[in-house]
Design a binder for these strands. Structure first.
Length: 179
DNA sequence: AAGAAGATTCGCT
DNA sequence: GCGAATCTTCTTA
């Protein structure tokens, strides 16, 4: 995905945290595993907003997952941000996560949401303009992208819709793939 | 109205 | 490596 390599900026009263996206997973239109597959609901309505809006989903009673709507208005599709490489505000992230290990700060969708203090208040937030949470592009970042099967799904899991930065130690999953 | 499943994480064996 | 915790939504009676 084109989101890989982008910088996530999170501004809050406690300070600023930033991280580079190293892993994403796509949920396109017509995907049986996509939350928008059966039409809009109260929870997934943001997926039908135009490109660049945050869709925050609360799963399993304890995990927030951060997504970005990826299509034009009226089309339900999005991209799940699965992992970040922490760049700044590590102390704040560590405080929120309750661990001092940099590798565990944002390696995994639920973890990164907790590290950035992302919750339902940011559901529907516009990520294209500076604010509490937005995406910055640092321009020159020719990344070596890899692609593989998705993780954690029981449907359509075989599809090659997971994108990551090759060689990054912050990519989630059982095994780290090297270039 | 009740039951099952789900884009996860953490703790224990 | 495997199973529990935990909440929202969708499906079935």
């Amino acid at each position: 995905m084109f989101l890989v390599g982008k910088i996530v900026v999170r501004d809050s009263d406690a300070g600023r945290c930033t991280g580079r996206i190293v892993e994403t997973e796509a949920y396109p239109l017509g995907d049986a595993a996509c939350h928008a597959f059966n039409g809009p609901t109260k929870r997934n309505r943001i997926l039908f907003a135009r490109r660049g809006h945050a869709y925050v989903y609360f799963a399993y009673g304890s995990c927030y997952l951060l997504n970005v709507s990826s299509e034009v208005e009226g089309v339900g599709a999005g991209v799940l941000i699965r992992a970040l490489e922490p760049l700044s505000g590590l102390d704040l992230m560590a405080q929120r996560r309750g661990t001092a290990r940099t590798l565990d700060l944002a390696r995994g969708p639920g973890r990164l949401a907790e590290a950035l203090d992302v919750d339902l208040r940011l559901d529907g937030h516009d990520l294209c303009a500076p604010g509490a949470l937005w995406l910055a592009d640092d321009g020159a970042t020719p990344l070596r992208m890899g692609r593989t099967t998705r993780i954690g799904l029981s449907r359509e899991a075989h599809r090659i819709l997971r994108f990551y930065e090759r060689g990054s130690r912050y990519v989630s999953g059982p095994r780290n793939l090297l270039s």
